[in-house]
């Protein structure tokens, strides 16, 4: 059973590349690896929580009111995550800013609750939340890496926001940032990089 969720989440039904859900954070946040990774982890966390909250009560949720109920649960969970991150690590909270509360509006969370958790038992729902989130996180990291290198000439920029000031040396400057291709750092660059990734995925699928 779990094998299916791994395959779906990471490749066959990848949230960022196949389902194309959650594009708002995918495109907006991925200016560097750090942001992509941090938002990805927060999304994994929310997806696991929302899936295992909905799955046990799925038989009590009336068909006609399911979307408001799902959103209520997701919004509640996201707010809890938002408050917790703010209390635990202010630098991380400042780095992610508005995108933590915006996880609520990330369609992939609602989509997995609706398509999977409301039809399956708790444990597979947990796996589904985790691997769907992980698949999205990989996409966010790759996009972040590409845009950061091309647009700014760096790798692991701002990584010290996540793991502390003494790790600032991890940031690698590949070339002077003023030589960067600015478009990559701007939203259109995100679209272009994403489409390149989708192209790659479809090429691999075609060859099989």
């Amino acid at each position: 059973m779990i094998k299916e969720q791994i395959k779906d989440g990471l490749w066959k039904q990848n949230a960022g590349l196949v389902q194309l859900l959650g594009l708002c954070p995918t495109l907006a946040v991925t200016v560097n690896i750090t942001n992509g990774f941090a938002l990805g982890v927060a999304t994994i966390f929310v997806m696991m929580l929302s899936n295992i909250s909905i799955s046990p009560i799925r038989n009590y949720v009336p068909e006609s009111a399911r979307v408001p109920i799902f959103i209520l649960v997701i919004a509640g969970l996201v707010t809890i995550v938002d408050l917790s991150i703010n209390a635990l690590s202010k630098p991380l909270y400042d780095a992610l800013g508005i995108f933590i509360p915006l996880i609520v509006t990330n369609c992939i969370v609602l989509a997995r609750v609706e398509a999977f958790a409301s039809k399956n038992t708790t444990l597979p729902s947990l796996y589904d939340g985790f691997f769907m989130g992980l698949g999205l996180t990989f996409v966010l990291i790759i996009l972040g890496a590409v845009r950061e290198i091309v647009g700014n000439g760096t790798l692991f920029q701002n990584v010290h926001f996540l793991i502390g000031d003494k790790y600032e040396f991890l940031t690698i400057q590949l070339f002077d940032s003023s030589d960067g291709f600015l478009l990559a750092a701007l939203p259109p660059g995100a679209f272009i990089a994403l489409s390149a990734l989708i192209l790659f995925l479809n090429l691999v699928n075609q060859k099989r």
């Binding site: 009560i57 009111a65 109920i69 209520l72």
Partner: peptide, 8 residues
């Protein structure tokens, strides 16, 4: 519907 929304 009302009771489950209120409860949640």
């Amino acid at each position: 519907t009302i009771s489950i929304i209120s409860l949640l």
